[in-house]
Design a protein around this nucleic acid. Structure first.
Lengths: 346, 346
DNA sequence: CTGTTAGCGCATTCAG
DNA sequence: CTGAATGCGCTAACAG
């Protein structure tokens, strides 16, 4: 029924082994023979059986990319970059790898489930993007799982996440703390003193580091860290909107709002505008990430640009073993302060 | 080295067959035996070998989701919705399916490559999102490939793409033509007559249908279809920006701009603003899709809302065989005109 | 350079 | 309800 390697071999009048060799291209085969085999493949419209191939070879061409939220360009940009380095020649069979992105939705269970599924498929590599959940139980389970993956020969790379001690995972970490520090430093230099902070979800490394940077900047300036002006929420537009209304309630004299990321900042801008405040004349706003739409906001967002695409591409190359791992298995990726129209003097 | 089914069987003192049966849960096993097996699985930290399992069963738990641009929320939202319906119980082994999204980057070759890869993996289903490339050669190759997939037992669902005649693929098509028609109708009713159109890439069904709707509306009103005021470009911000400058050059008296989608519209707004024009006082702008950021644009974008999330979820359910297929295998999903601040009287 | 020989790990018959 | 036997389709030694 379904055509197999043996069928191709019969038609090309060679042994199955030879067909396998031309298909995988990792072994010398006479040009004429190769020709004949390829024609037979085309004639029969043969497609390699992936599971059988992976079973026999004890490895697959699957590369998993885990993202917290596939609808968020922050992850989409990284995932696309990872994938662009993974596709193309280099795979085992047919020279193509299957880069697959898995959407965890930010759920620790789903993260683990996907890793198990990838482990089950004997994935060649796994790239995990974005911040981690800070829960002791989950961290332990994750560490164990990553270790298991490494032992099974799956290369693990973290992109935009702190290192995972106790594992062999390579980490490209974003300097969220430093970025947050510079952002707030910028506001302070403009004379702002009553600064609201809209943080991401609690128990997320990204959230915590950005917030710590903010508070360090405040502390450096000898100011109170203003816990009462911090509101947590998800990394979405609605959160920025709601949180801003809440901040305004707590401190009507607010002169600046720092948002967990650009998307949240957009919601903050909407809320401020609806409350009759002008940006940046009455209140300054900043975001984080510098997503593509940020430059088109009105006024354009002051933010911290993270080289998402570069980082993703690098993670992809490391996952493929095409780039040297950073010393110690950890590299820090800095964000650059981008000052635009949404911030001004207090 | 790596623990196998046999190891689990030995530890649980049952036969491999029994272990397989409890793992797949599709066969009666005594509760006590099941207990023992599950404990052994936990003790040994056993993970099923996916390739071996798929090989023996001649099917896998992989479900592929093809997207044109993973960094674009338009696709991210659909992909996330598809995936939310695919995950969870229902899979063969362990009750979990691996929903994987593949980024074609809009390239026909990559689309085919990914489909082959998925075919190779004996994917349970494939959901293809977004418009198709209108190239006779590619269409033929794609039809053949989809047919091959169907024959191999892979369910194929198109989401946001016209039906593929000659295949068994189910299609949830967006009414891009109708949406485009209503959008332009709205502008005409506001008195606009000199309307620029920024179309997406040529040879894309989405592009063509939206544009046709636009021209039909013009024709219905007895106006020329204004081919000289149509500019093509990719579905991104930069395209909107450049195209708008070009349109302004061709017709400085433009009173409205219709963009291929919201992202393009954002770029158009930026260009208009930089040219000193106010929106909507001098020039009205509309987008398409109603992505999350569109409501936060200033002024908020008039657009056509596509139920991306609903459509994706439905596609996912159909792919899983959990929802009845639409009659004739085709369903049309309408877009709703959403009038906001970016459009006003001419 | 090419053919032969063995499994890879699991799901299924088929018996019991 | 459970065990034994068979083969899924392919790759990887090993010979030639």
């Amino acid at each position: 029924m379904t055509v197999t390697l043996a069928d191709v071999a019969a038609r090309a009048q060679v042994s199955p082994a030879t067909v396998s060799r031309v298909l995988n291209g990792n072994y010398p085969v006479a040009a004429a023979t190769r020709e004949r085999v390829l024609r037979a493949v085309a004639d029969l419209d043969y497609v390699l059986n992936g599971p059988a191939s992976s079973l026999a070879a004890a490895t697959s061409d699957l590369v998993g990319i885990l993202v917290n939220d596939i609808a968020d360009p922050f992850f989409g940009i990284m995932a696309g970059a990872v994938q662009s380095e993974i596709g193309g020649p280099g795979g085992r069979a047919g020279g193509e790898r299957l880069a697959v992105v898995c959407n965890t939705g930010g759920s620790p269970e789903r993260e683990l489930t996907y890793l198990t599924l990838l482990q089950r498929q004997r994935a060649a590599a796994v790239v995990i993007t974005g911040g981690a959940i800070e829960d002791a139980g989950h961290a332990q389970a994750l560490t164990a799982k990553l270790q298991r993956l490494s032992e099974a020969g799956t290369r693990v790379v973290l992109c935009g996440r702190p290192p995972a001690p106790g594992t062999e995972a390579i980490a490209l970490t974003f300097d969220n703390r430093g970025g947050g520090h510079r952002l707030t430093g910028h506001l302070l230099s403009l004379g702002h003193r009553r600064i609201g902070y809209i943080a991401g979800p609690e128990e997320r490394t990204t959230t915590r580091h950005r917030l710590e940077g903010h508070r360090e900047a405040l502390a450096d300036a000898g100011l109170p860290t203003g816990e009462e002006l911090t509101v947590h929420g998800p990394y979405d537009r609605g959160s920025g909107y709601e949180a801003t209304l809440e901040l305004l309630r707590r401190e009507p004299g607010l002169t600046a709002v720092v948002a967990a990321n650009d998307t949240v900042a957009l919601g903050a801008c909407a809320a401020l505008r609806e409350s009759g405040r002008r940006i940046p004349d009455d209140v300054s706003v900043c975001g984080f990430d510098d997503l593509p739409f940020s430059v088109d906001a009105v006024p354009a967002l002051t933010t911290v640009r993270l080289p998402l695409s570069d980082a993703g591409a690098r993670a992809g190359r490391i996952a493929m073993g095409r780039e040297k791992e950073p010393p110690g298995g950890v590299a820090t990726v800095r964000g650059e302060l981008v000052v635009r129209g949404s911030t001004g003097r207090a």
